[in-house]
């Protein structure tokens, strides 16, 4: 169902390991290494989020929490959330206590690249209207591919131009979905 549940089933070895013909600049495979800190932080953040939502629940206009009103269900959801977040945190703490190694979760590798990709995404969001779909998409594609580890610039540029021009014309001319032309005289 979800795009990623495969991992949870744990039965499937990673097909990508036997990589052949790796390109220059491609990222190293970095798999599960032990770090119990991630889930702990997550637990704390979730509790904090729950408290934030609790204040938002109380900010909903109306008095009381009668089940027919607009405040009841948000309250219920928030309270259960807080309870479960606490259970989650305790679970993680217990687990850490049980095994000194902590649980096997993926370390946040390549976090620099994640940040870079997010910056690119945000820049893309702001550029698309003033600059126009074709140019911003092509530039975004090339830079995103590089962040994702591509090392073949010529190929990326070719694909980027083809993709952005193709998408623009198919969507605006054939499918009638508006995309901004921006600085290009289209």
């Amino acid at each position: 169902m979800t795009g990623s549940d495969s991992r949870e089933l744990g039965a499937v070895p990673d097909g990508g390991r036997a990589g052949h013909g790796a390109e220059p600049g491609e990222l190293d495979v970095d798999d599960a290494s032990s770090s119990p800190v991630g889930p702990l932080i997550a637990g704390v953040v979730m509790i904090g989020f729950g408290i934030l939502m609790l204040t938002q629940t109380l900010a909903i206009k109306g008095e009381g929490f009668e089940p027919e009103g607009p405040r009841f269900m948000p309250m219920l959801a928030t309270v259960v959330w807080l309870g479960l977040s606490t259970v989650y945190l305790v679970q993680q703490l217990l687990r850490m206590a049980r095994s000194r190694d902590g649980l096997p979760v993926q370390r946040f590798a390549h976090s620099g690249r994640v940040v870079a990709l997010l910056v690119l995404l945000v820049a893309y969001a702001y550029a698309i209207d003033p600059v126009g779909y074709i140019i911003s998409t092509a530039v975004f594609f090339v830079s995103a591919a590089r962040v994702l580890g591509s090392g073949v610039l010529a190929r990326d540029v070719t694909v980027a131009v083809g993709l952005s021009v193709g998408v623009y014309f198919v969507f605006t001319r054939l499918l009638g979905v508006y995309l901004p032309p921006g600085v290009l005289p289209l």
């Binding site: 605006t172 001319r173 499918l175 009638g176 979905v177 508006y178 032309p181």
Partner: peptide, 15 residues
């Protein structure tokens, strides 16, 4: 809000 009329010759005007 982001859709333009695709019908016939309206495309240009819509753009």
């Amino acid at each position: 809000r982001r859709t333009t009329a695709a019908a016939g010759g309206l495309v240009l005007a819509a753009a």
